[in-house]
Amino acid sequence: MNNKSIVIDGKNVPFEDGQTIMQAATAAGIYIPHLCHNPDFTPHGSCKLCTVKVNGRNCSACTFPASEGQNITNVTKELNDDREKITQMLFVEGNHFCPSCEKTGNCNLQAVAYHLGMTDNHFPHFFENREVDASHPDVMIDHNRCIFCTLCVRASQQEDGKNVFAISGRGIEKRLIVNSESGLLKDSDLDVNDCAAHICPTGAILIKRTGYKVPIGQRIFDHAHIDTVTLANEGASHDE
């Protein structure tokens, strides 16, 4: 047992050495918005949605180690307004037309936007031309919706023991690429049962012929908030 703790929004939160702020918060039932973080994989720290103020300084909760003496703010108008703008950046960077996306209602990006009360995309759209790779018999990639969270990359490496995906390119030219000679998914060693095929928080990687099994209106985030859903899922996986 230990009795080390940090303070999040005025609440004492215990932590163990080696835990990140995100891990300590989740275990204590506190939701910190996030997209690139998934407790099953090495943290990445790229989406910046999980930014919290640690003793006045902005830090990514998913990568920053918890340590004694941290006074952290998580839910403030300032932070949530800025998180909303970061989410809006992701929406204008890609091409997110939710009404025609199979993932709608089950999408973490969308759900975070709902959670933050986002009603528009605020910034000018890039409308970049991005492709769809439907070559694989069971799995498809719609690059329009990729937010470069690398969860598929990490899942393939860390869970499936493969190396199917990578994020390539510099700056705004970033793109998901597939590890196969042709560059097509069908020529990679991805299997439909791979963790990497199911991990995508958005509608960028989809399993074919399953999209409308659950009708719109009855999907995860149609009625439940992402905070409760996340804490139920990720809190549990921490207790293991």
Binding site: G45, S46, C47, F148
Partner: peptide, 21 residues
């Protein structure tokens, strides 16, 4: 900066390009 951003994190990847515009 927009040209040199490595593109890892959202605020800089998207932000520097928006700023350029």
């Amino acid at each position: 900066f927009a040209h040199e951003s490595c593109g890892f994190c959202t605020p800089c990847r998207v932000g520097t390009s928006l700023l350029k515009k």
